[in-house]
Design a protein around this nucleic acid. Structure first.
Lengths: 216, 216
DNA sequence: TTTTAATAGCGATTTTTTTCTTTATTCATA
DNA sequence: TATGAATAAAGAAAAAAATCGCTATTAAAA
């Protein structure tokens, strides 16, 4: 499918590229055409060289005295990340967070399309949330198999996470985006990426404490 | 306040400690008393030495042939992260994600207590969501000042993020937990920690693609 | 044209983070 | 009490990531 040689992209770089992408989209809407590393470095409080290296890894070239063409950078990042073809996904667990993700339209532009949600709560089953149908969890595995869904989003409470992950795997899902604060045990080829909001907040608290000690 | 020397904790370590903490809590509920690095390494698919180093940084000692006392590790991590005293916070932007965070009770056990939310939508102002009152955004800065709130959670749409961040700073807020996919420009002592769901998902997609190339 | 200033590019260096290796400790068992 | 096995501890090595210093390129200004 992709023409790219599929080299290994350092994970920090990968994450930053996504962030650059979001920002460049905004700059583009404001009518900007090109942007320099220097400017990006200031915006993101990063080292300009680091941004240059990141873009280099993404296979993007700039021109001296001018910078990088924003549209070219955006296109390169999107192709690198595989956002050009959208992946269908199932979401399990229509709680607060699950429902929020169902309504997050931006995802479609970032390579993921949630086509159905699953839950145990009879009050939710049969309804639509943000336009996405909610089915019984018991139907997830067979449906995933039939529709060849490869991506599962896990937004169930921690105690249920392992069980539901097992269901996903039984349905042929190969990649799990895990929001449950737990360690998932999955067999070899299955890919898990966990989001830990608590970790992020801990970093914030830690920085705040350091900042306070610095100024006192 | 804290007795700890406030040394610098590597950010990757900090994030992992939070994840260990969540898992250890679960092990504890299942009646486990001690745990070894070897077991944790298997659970998290990490290197055992790395976990040992992480715990060492957190100032935790284990005993050979046995492992680490789970309660001691939990207590150490909580004190290290400052979860022993809870920080009050304001949340701006009661959209899908904002509302979800308001209902996330676990936060209180992780050092943050959202005491009020703010929005522009008149339909939301004056109501309570998950028990938290929603006020007009115009009241955020003065209230933050009066109540000496130091932490702001930013869940507004990207175009509004900078403006609302400025409001927070005007109200004396020192740390911003940013969920908007944008780069915030803030003055020196202000701390920003951004959560990029899209970055996390990009990592998942990337791993999935690599996994596929490996097996084919 | 020539000069100047801003910028990307590239290799080298440094720092940080992870992993490996070896040693020491502790518990269980004989 | 000795022995063996599992584990933590500590230091060394390796790998990864970030940063620095310099060069080359380009556009604008003189």
């Amino acid at each position: 499918m992709s023409e790219r040689p599929l080299m290994v992209i350092p994970q920090p770089t990968l994450k930053r590229l996504v962030v650059y992408h979001q920002w460049l989209k905004q700059l583009q809407e404001r009518g900007r055409d090109v942007v320099s590393c220097t400017v990006l470095a200031r915006d993101f409080k990063l080292d300009a060289t680091q941004i240059r290296k990141d873009l280099e890894i993404a296979g993007i070239a700039g021109t001296p005295r001018v910078g990088y063409r924003i549209d070219a950078v955006i296109a390169s990042i999107e192709s690198l990340l595989g956002w050009t073809n959208v992946n269908d996904a199932f979401l399990a667990g229509v709680g607060n967070l699950g429902a929020a993700l169902l309504g997050y339209e931006r995802f479609t532009r970032q390579g993921v399309n949630i086509i159905a949600a699953f839950d145990l709560d009879p009050a939710k089953i049969g309804t639509k949330i943000h336009g996405k149908p909610v089915f019984s969890l018991t139907k997830m595995a067979p449906l995933a198999q039939r529709m060849k869904i490869k991506i599962g989003i896990l937004t169930v409470p921690a105690p249920a996470a392992q069980t539901v992950a097992d269901l996903m795997i039984a349905g042929g899902i190969e990649a799990i985006w895990n929001f449950a604060p737990t360690a998932l045990q999955v067999p070899e080829p299955i890919v898990v990426e966990s989001v830990s909001l608590a970790s992020s907040f801990a970093v914030l608290l830690n920085q705040l404490q350091h900042q306070r000690h610095k100024t006192t």
